[in-house]
Amino acid sequence: MRSTEDLIASLSTGLTPVRRLKPPLLRALGWILLATAVIAILVLLRGFRADIDACLQDPAYLIQVVGAWLTGAAATLAAFEISLPDRKRSWLLLPLPFAALWLSGFAYGCLGDWIAIPSGAPVMADSIRCLETLVMASLPLGLVLWMMLRRARPLRASATAWVGALAVAAFADTAHLLIHVVQASSLVLVINLVPVTIILMIGGFFGRQALRAAA
């Protein structure tokens, strides 16, 4: 084993300047703005859902949309904070109240007024369009978030990846809620929660590996 003094000499020889990371709040705000812009672009491309006027009068819908966006914003801030070594783990709790609000919107809307799948409804075609929106939102957002988080080379790669994946999933679902009409309660649960869970699992697992490789 070489001595610690040799290692210090080796590390300090030819040292190059590094670009300091901006404060996590600033970096999080940048990404939240990007996520909101991506949602706006998707809405422009695909249009608001046909029943948007009625939806804006529905408290369950508003709770879902606002809850999803706030979950995304809180999870983003938590991801940037937790990616730094000296920040408290309690940042991980920040998105939880907003996630509870988001999920309570589904529970209130679906379980309070259960609507069965109408006969002859184009379930498969609708589901594919929904998935397209979720993928179009989550892929670019996930990629940019990963590139931003890996600059910190997070020591808590796993926690950073999971909370980052939650941010991506929540913003992708915000876009989905604004664009797609899903009438049947069972489909609302399946089309929102299943892809969100998949984004979370993929982002959490692969993000963890990718961030570990960067550390």
Binding site: L7, R20, P85, D86, R151, A152, A215
Partner: peptide, 28 residues
């Protein structure tokens, strides 16, 4: 020391150094 070297861009000089260093040490 190697970890500190690889994440030295993440230190914010406006914050105290010792807690940052200790956090890195703890993780390793």
């Amino acid at each position: 020391l190697l970890t500190l070297h690889s994440i030295r861009q993440s230190y914010d000089p406006k914050r105290p150094f010792a807690p940052w260093l200790l956090a890195v040490a703890r993780h390793r």
